[in-house]
Amino acid sequence: MNTPILRLGLRSLFGRARVWLLIALPLVLIGLSVLLRSVSTGMTDADAQSFLQVFGIGIVVPVVTLLATTTLINSEFDDGSIIYLLTKPISRVAIIGSKATIVLGAALIGGAVPMGIAALVLVGSGGGLALAALVAGVVAAAAYVGIFIALATVMKRSILGCLLYWLIWESTISSLISPVKWLSARSWGDSLVAAISSIVGAGKPPVPALYAVLAALVALVAGVLLVGRRLAAMTSSDE
């Protein structure tokens, strides 16, 4: 961890126009929850839970994480300004660790916390759905941060790589082929929502909750270490 890099990261994330995109999506989530709550009288708690799983875990958390990753990592690689960080005498794992911390923070504020609020709006405090949504949001955000920063450094044209990963692997293949649930950040989040909330008739968690938490932690740590190693092996002369 490195304070100046944290500060730079915060400034580049919140000092641009695209911060509005980051704010818009959580607002849409909460707004739609208010709408559903006021319009749909016949909505059960199980419906609310599956709405949070499909929209919150499936869209808001990954897209917010993706936007934050793109701003903090991709654009610095694209315009070459990453070199100014790499030439400083700071451990490169610490550089990427600091960046990952900012991305994770943005994902928590823009993804996990709005999910908790949306759950409160939809069902109130009953069934523990708010806590479940918050925890699941945190876990899914951690997993997505690890995956996206790894993809963002490894692949070229990485915005597209991350997007296609999210659309093809998380949204399409994991819903078609069931064993993929063991390797999908989305199903880890889904599992935690289902495991923590005590709403009847909402379906069983796809994978055990403990596995989901551990897998997300592994994804985060492995992502940071992988990117750190890759940056450490990078020399500034061959570009």
Partner: peptide, 25 residues
């Protein structure tokens, strides 16, 4: 993002509207 995120939002809302038998929504 514009096409798939709106598609995802619409699908989630359609599911919720169908579950609560709210045809107009």
């Amino acid at each position: 993002i514009a096409l798939m995120v709106t598609s995802g939002i619409v699908t989630a809302l359609l599911g919720a509207a169908h579950g609560s038998h709210n045809g107009t929504l």
